[in-house]
Amino acid sequence: MAATAPVGGKTVTVRVNGTTYEREVEARRLLIHFLRDDLDLTGSHVGCDTGNCGACSVLYDGTLVKSCMLLAVQADGASIETVEGLAEGDELNDLQQAFGAHHALQCGYCTPGMLMSATALLREKPHPTEDEIRKGIQGNICRCTGYVNIVEAIKSVGA
């Protein structure tokens, strides 16, 4: 049973946007802080820290999650995609360009999470209805109240 003895921290191996990282982390460290502070991937934002706002959303083994609602130690062995992984080389991808074209961001704070939620949605449903788009970004709060333009941007990519 030695393998299950509780530990205060451990070395984790996590693949993020195709790069493998190995770091020692405390058990209490949230995944969002691991990404931002340990890996310096500051694209994912901390908005509320309570699982409500979705600014920290990332893809975790292909599944949309809020990275403030996981521990970094849980992610040992996982593959994660963050907003930094969306661009194709130096070019913003179609979704990112659509956000610009449709003025789908004002302050931009929610944008990384919105982009990851839209990415997850479009992979599952390449041509989502407006209702499906609204359901898809239900876990992401925009306090500039720009939802209409965000929905339009996602719709334009899925058209």
């Binding site: 049973m1 393998a3 299950t4 003895a5 509780p6 530990v7 205060g8 921290g9 451990k10 405390e26 058990a27 209490r28 460290r29 949230l30 820290d49 403030c68 521990l71 130690v73 040992d76």
Partner: peptide, 16 residues
């Protein structure tokens, strides 16, 4: 946010 210190175990069976 920093959580309180906590131990972590990752068993591989229900018995463990």
């Amino acid at each position: 946010m920093l959580l309180p210190e906590v131990g972590y175990a990752r068993p591989s069976t229900v018995d463990e």
